[in-house]
Design a protein around this nucleic acid. Structure first.
Length: 196
DNA sequence: CTCTTGATCTTCT
DNA sequence: GAAGATCAAGAGC
């Protein structure tokens, strides 16, 4: 087995207050940040913004048992079941009642790659976390994590270090409000769910 | 490479 | 009963 390169240095820990502003300010600032769950994870390279004022958001029709966390304050985790089989993870943004969030869609694996390969049953690093359902499986995220805070274990989030270029485009896999350019990604990354 | 399909949970009609 | 913020496997080109 080839040795993995050393994991990159981490930036400063992001606190809950990081999320208490517009989802469109948070979204580009999260590209390049590092997400870890029990020490396993990587660099966020792709995400999408959702807001209760547009019909693609789960919160558009008001609170339900599933989306209740979205209606709380920013800085917490919203996990939902997708197509009956996958889990998808969101970070809630803005103030309580704003019901906005970013869907984490892809990571560049950097920490705990062996654990991710084991959970995914795959060796190819580029396929470990290149999609919203894939990365939750790789990090071990399930409904048990719904409602947890992002700045408290098992979660840890670290600011990016240095400059990057953020790409934007239309969101993937939706039919309502499909024209909004609310997909954000790390320009040129090899770990996206799809190229921009 | 693209296209199709099955898996089967939660919400809405 | 249908649709959905998905993925992997298999068929066909």
């Amino acid at each position: 087995m080839a040795q993995n390169p050393p994991a990159p240095r981490l930036g400063k820990p992001l606190k809950r207050a990081f999320f208490l502003r517009s989802v469109h300010e948070v979204a580009p600032d999260l590209i390049g940040a590092t997400l870890l769950v029990n020490g396993v994870g990587g660099v966020i390279v792709e995400l999408e913004a959702y807001h209760h004022t547009e019909p693609a958001a789960h919160s558009f029709n008001g609170p339900t048992p599933r989306n209740a966390v979205m209606f709380g304050p920013g800085g917490f985790v919203y996990v939902y079941r997708s197509y009956g089989i996958h889990w998808c993870v969101n970070f809630v943004c803005e103030r309580e009642g704003s019901a906005s969030a970013v869907l984490i869609r892809a990571l560049e694996p950097t920490h705990g790659i062996a654990a991710m390969r084991r959970r995914r049953g795959l060796h190819d690093e580029r396929a470990l976390c290149s999609g919203p359902g894939k990365l939750t499986q790789a990090l071990g995220i399930t409904h048990a994590h719904n409602g947890l805070a992002l700045d408290v274990p098992p979660f840890a989030l670290y600011a990016r270090i240095g400059k990057i270029e953020v790409a934007t485009g239309v969101r993937i896999g939706i039919t309502k409000a499909a024209e909004l350019p609310w997909r954000y990604g790390l320009k040129g990354s090899k770990f996206l769910s799809k190229p921009f």
